[in-house]
Amino acid sequence: MFYYLLSITIVALIISFIFDKKKTIKAIQVSYKKFTNILPAFLIMLILVSIALFLVPDEVIMHYLGSKNNFFSVTLASIFGSITLMPGFIAYPLCGILLKKGVSYMALAAFTTTLMMVGVLSYPVEKEYFGAKVTIIRNLISFIISIIVAVTIGFFFGELI
């Protein structure tokens, strides 16, 4: 995935450069400025993530998601998903393992959807762009959507009753 992104970026830069040298240099200056200005917020986020992953390691997630009580497991799954930040290539194999261990589709849906849509730890970054109020509302809405998704998944996989 890294190489795919890198090659697209290089090709885009070359094409841009052929068409207009000045604009391309301007674009790189713009990128640099934007990047360095948001970097402190990213640093805070990375620090929070490193601490959160220590406090809530994979084993803990595995342990609690396996609960037979749907309400309990979905609630915990969505809280874990909201506070952790995990790239998809780590999260889905983990979910694959959990599925084999008997964790419900519903809890996993709650976990992955909140993981992808709700970002408590990325708050420092999101706030810089959207402002605190919108960031909080957006995350709350995303949390509710995740719960709806989880319950629907539970219904279609026959886990609700």
């Binding site: 992104l5 697209i8 970026t9 830069l13 841009s16 674009a27 790189i28 990128s31």
Partner: peptide
Amino acid sequence: CAFILIGL
């Protein structure tokens, strides 16, 4: 890479 694309 993402920021360069944003700049472009």
